[in-house]
Design a protein around this nucleic acid. Structure first.
Lengths: 187, 187
DNA sequence: ATGGGGGTAGACAGACCTGTCTACCTGAGC
DNA sequence: GCTCAGGTAGACAGGTCTGTCTACCCCCAT
């Protein structure tokens, strides 16, 4: 998930805010990150910030949208790099889970944090996961069971994502995930 | 997960605080719940609160410990009610995921919310999940593969827990979980 | 009967939160 | 040359957060 962006100076104010917010929200959590900090670290004036994002919730929406695009592109690319078949799934995920900046799934974390006060994030997460499931289905062999298999693998991936967040290393999660994928595709 | 407690009046101040904090933390999130609200809703004086829990993090620790005991007891009981074998797993989980007050796993949510500022919750979550995995292993048939199967099922359960949090109903998650459990135990 | 442990009520400090507002600057297009 | 869109800097309001502190009270065991 290391996606290099162009040097900060060439980005528009809006993009600088969005990149900064992404990094802070993903790493520290949304509630833990004050608007003031986003403003300070993106090197923008307060008025400029509020012109682009009238409220913090607008920024949260933009953050999740940005994250969604970036993650889907990374996922498609990484699956392709690993051959684009069913065997690409676990190694591709492994790259992410082993990233030192890994902090879990932005959507799962945001739902856990904000669903109570900002329920719209639930729908956003559901839409994201539906696209992930479709991307998984696309690498599975065509068969009557493909949709069900993709659902089950997507669920197991969510489990691996969460487990890698509190285990000391992601290896056990990857091993369990591999076992599940293998059992599902054999059945 | 509906565990009825004795009438509020007979509880000690500490227990009243703990029950109130549990309900608010679990339902609304920890950061979203101010100490003042816990104090007001548990009907206790501020000084009393701070005598029992010198800081909010102490309350968080107590909340997770309380939740852990309550959940493990509920899980053991519910597995037993469903026959205590491998086939008890999905129906037992189903009872939880279908509970109208269901809001996901307290430990997963807390890690997502607080890991950045209070890393101790990661260890607490890991210890909780290790006990859950042991409880799962206890209902599986003895075999060379039992430990690995229990790990994989525990991971799939985490996935189902998360998925049921953002899906409109938990049924798809339960179906996918059942498919995974079946495939793993056949293999 | 009296001393003290544990409780109540609530003011207060100081930090941080989101969001508004004023005043000024700069550079590109007309 | 002037206008104006879009930027900067930062004071300010009003709320909420955690945590401290004073002052009082009540019940029970010594």
């Amino acid at each position: 998930m290391a996606t290099d962006h162009p040097a900060v100076e060439v980005l528009s104010a809006r993009d600088r805010i969005l990149h900064t917010a992404h990094d802070l929200f993903y790493c520290d959590g949304i509630r833990a990150t004050g608007i003031d900090r986003v403003i300070a670290e993106s090197g923008v004036a307060k008025l400029t910030f509020y012109r682009h994002f009238p409220s913090k919730n607008d920024l949260v929406r933009a953050y999740l949208d940005f994250r969604h695009r970036r993650w889907m592109a990374w996922f498609a690319d990484t699956l392709a790099r690993h051959g684009g078949g069913p065997d690409a799934l676990v190694p591709a995920l492994g790259e992410w889970l082993r990233d030192p900046d890994y902090r879990g799934c932005a959507f799962i974390n945001t739902v856990g944090e904000l669903a109570g006060s900002f329920p719209e994030v639930i729908e956003i997460a559901r839409a994201h996961k539906a696209e992930v499931t479709a991307a998984i289905a696309a690498v599975l062999p065509a068969s009557r069971k493909r949709a069900g298999q993709a659902q089950a693998i997507a669920l197991a991936i969510d489990g691996a994502i969460v487990r890698a967040q509190y285990d000391e290393t992601p290896e056990a999660a990857l091993e369990a995930l591999a076992r599940i994928v293998k059992a599902l595709l054999k059945a």
